[in-house]
Structures are given as structure tokens and as C-alpha cells.
Nucleic acid binder design. Structure first.
Length: 126
RNA sequence: ACUGCAAAUCGGCCUACCGCUCUUUCGGGGGAGGAAAGUCCAGACAGCAUAGAGCACCGCACCGUUCGCAAGCACGGGUGUUGAGGGAGGAAUUCCUUGGCAACAGCAAGUGUCACAGAAAAUAACCGCUCCGAUUUAUCGGUGUAAGGGUGAAAAUGUGAGGUAAGAGCUCACGUGUUCCGGUGGUAACAUCGGAAUGGGACAAACCUUGCGGGCUGCAAGACCAAAUAGGUCAGGAUCUAAGAGUUGCUCGCUCUUUCCUGAUGGGUAGGUUGCAUAGAUAAAUGGUAGGCUAAAACAGGAUCUGGCUUACGGGUUUGCACAAAAC
RNA sequence: CGGGGUGUAGCUUAGCCCGGUUAAAGUGCGCGUCUGGGGGGCGCGAGAGCGGUGGUUCGAAUCCACUCACCCCGA
């Protein structure tokens, strides 16, 4: 079934959707991640995600890539509950995770944060 | 052996589970670096421009070889300079070995600058020296001179002799620097020998002069496909007795434009394909967790490609050089 | 990807083009003084060797080369 996959359909690629998300989307913070979300009419997947790490805070490409990979892994391993919920209620969302911390996080700490983010998204939209 | 220095080189591996990207004949296969970086140079490639020549602007500047338009880079060589070691000598100095650096064409084309100090920083004259004149016999004025003094980063070719009122390349000898000519060695830069002329302070990373080279812009270049909306062109139709223009002396009529509908068409935007690759996308792929080797491994992530340069870097390996005293 | 700019006292700037004597100013800091005290005024003083390395030159913040850091612009 691919419960822990993260393929292309689940990534936010369209420039139009990205612009709409940053213009009209709502957001909340769960340090060190800022989450933006926007309901979509119809889509290929129940949740399409975009991960961003600002260049101003992390000068080196290696650092930015590493943080993006960590966030992607934690999301990939914890998202199944959220996707199931939205799939049952036929909701479609565009998501953006922006890293606002100043240091490179540890995997275990980020897992805790990501679980709280998933919970919040579940309760907010339920 | 250890340690230090220099150079070259390597740039974590294995196992399990969960994942990413490209490709596929659906079995599978490929998947970041020595610097991928900085963007300091250069080229390939692409578009535009282009009769020929000159000027401006920019770049380069000892010689040879590979590549290249010229440079750069690499290797080798010359010259200069600087550090270290050694030899000769009383010293100045000079020779040899070795390492670093050099934007090493031209101030003898012109212009400009040379602070402070000093008389004077490039048509030299303060003290001094010489002669002449005056005189109050302390000195003053004039002429000549550049040996000596002092200043400075730098003071007008060094030593000796002749010469002179005193002196001076003023003359001569021996040196020395520069330029030219010739011989020898070398592909050449250059080295060396002989002769002639000459004595021009430094600075061109000062303006500049000479020689050589350079068209401009860059893959977000460029090529192709192309929705919606608005407008363009063409064709057909409708509305007309509405408005304007043309035709005409005037009216009618005719033609065109304005309005609406339908169809076609070219340009072009979003977007896509290509350019684009034996890694290769287009919000952009190499990761995460656990364990072991052993301790966490360092610097660090491709966006058109290639070569050079520079910078960052834990640890390992190899080679070369140095290695005091003591103990064995 | 391409292009441009800036580094000088704690901070903000000048000086750089065209090299020269002790690197200048404002603000901040310290001390003194005026005031009953604060604020403010006045006076005095300390504080940088010019981002780094190398070169040219008698001499470099200034000229040149390389390099490090930061900022901005185009699409």
C-alpha cells in the first residue's frame, strides 16, 4: 500500500497553487516549524506538501538539504493517520512547512514536533 | 623508531529496515566532488551584428615547447632580487649550492611627481676654495669652481696621475654603467670577448608611447508547441436610414469606418517540449534510523558543458630532508 | 546564472581619485567643572593603524594582484 511513501503526487509543484497558498493560506507555528495550509477543490492527493528552509539562516546548501531531508523523513513516517482522516472525509489540502529555527535539528526532537503538527492539523480541520 | 618540515596521493566502508530520482526490453540498471564552491581567467556552444580601414576603450608584455587569437596555465631555461648554507678575503666585496618572488617592452619621445630635511630634487651652489676690487684690516661686494663639509630614500661615473689662480672627464690610464657594431657559444632570451660612442637621478602597479590581441551578449542564450482573455488582419452575415469621411456644384446613390454575430488566421502570455549529457531534474532526486569496523569521521551538494587558477578540509598512506643530549 | 558595491575608534561617516609630517569629525565612554540633585552646557582625556596576505615605491588607509566577509540589483 505504500503507507510510508512520499512520491511526486504528494509534492506541491504547481506555481499557481504555491502562490495561492502564500497569499490566502492560514498558518500556525509549532517551533521550529511554521505550517501554512490551504484547502483545495480537487487534487491528485489528499495532502500536497512543500518544505522550505530560508537561505538567510543557513548559508550552505548542505545544511539546507539536510534539514529538508529530516523534515521530509519525519513527515513521511508520521503522516499516515492524517492522510487516512482526510481521505475518509474527502478533503484536499496544500501544505507548506517553513523551518524557522537557527540550528540544525536532531531527528528525535523533530519527530516529537512533527507528531504535534499532525495532531493540530487533524483537530483543526476535523 | 619517534618528532618536525616539504611534496604527492586517498577523500569512509559493511549489514538490516523504511524511502527519493532518472531510465527500462518491467527482470532490472544508473544516481554528486576533489574541491561539485568562489566566479578570478579562457574556450566550446548559441543568438544578434558585420564592405574595408583608422581612432577610442579594454586586456597582455624576458625566451623556448604543448594548447591557444593573444594571454593565462604546465614544463624547461635566462636575468634581476631576496632568504639560508658553504668557500676566498683584513674589509668592501665576490664565487658556489639551494629555496621564494618578479606586471623583467620603453623615463635616451613628451608631460607630470619627488613630502620633511637640505644651498640645490634636475636650467645645482649654503659653508668652503680661488682671483679681483673696496676697506673701518672684524669684513663687504663681484668673478670662477664643484675637490671637501653637512641634509636626505636618492646629490650628477670610481681610483690614480697630469693640469690649474683654485678646480672640474678639462686631458690621460685603468675600471664601471648604457647604447651601437662585430666575433664565439646557444633555437632564443642571454652569456662572453673585441672595438666605437657616451655619462641620460628615480617613478610608467603616474599620465603616456611602442608592439600584439579583442565585434556584442549570454543556456534566464536560442529553437519548437501553445489554453483562456483582450486587441490585430481577412472572409461572410446582420443592424441600418444612426454618426463621421470620401465621391459630386447640390441631392439621391455608392464605398469605407464605427456596432453585433460566426468562421479563419498570424503575433504573443501562462504553461509545456527541447537545448540537456553513460548523474541529471524543472519548487528541483543520493536520505533517515539502528548496529559494527573505531570515535563523532573533515570541508562540503551538480542545474549547458570543458580546461586552468584560488580558497576550505579531520584523518590515513607513500617519498625526501633534518634528527641535540642521555640510556640501551 | 549574470552584474554592481562596501569593509577605517563601540556606532555612523570623512580621507582614497591626485601616495608624504600626529588618520579627521559627530555620537557614545571616562574624568573634572557649573547645579541642592538629574538633565544639559563647558573643559580635558582615552579609544582605530585603516578586513587579510603579498607586491610596486625611499615611503601605502590611498596604487596593483590575490583572498575573506557582507550588502544590493536583473530575470
Amino acid at each position: 500500500m505504500g503507507r510510508y511513501t512520499f512520491g511526486k503526487a504528494e509534492k506541491l509543484c504547481s506555481k499557481l497553487e504555491i502562490d495561492a497558498l502564500f497569499k490566502d493560506g492560514r498558518s500556525f507555528k509549532e517551533f521550529p516549524i511554521r505550517v501554512m495550509y490551504l484547502s483545495l477543490e480537487d487534487s491528485s492527493a489528499n495532502a500536497k506538501l512543500l518544505i522550505s528552509v530560508p537561505k538567510k539562516r543557513f548559508k550552505k546548501a548542505v545544511s539546507r538539504n539536510h534539514i529538508k531531508r529530516l523534515i521530509r523523513e519525519t513527515y513521511r513516517l508520521n503522516k499516515s493517520e492524517l492522510i487516512e482522516n482526510w481521505h475518509n472525509s474527502e478533503k484536499y489540502f496544500a501544505l507548506a512547512f517553513v523551518y524557522i529555527g537557527n540550528e540544525i535539528p536532531e531527528f528525535d526532537d523533530l519527530t516529537v514536533v512533527m507528531k504535534r503538527v499532525i495532531d493540530k492539523l487533524n483537530t483543526l480541520e476535523a
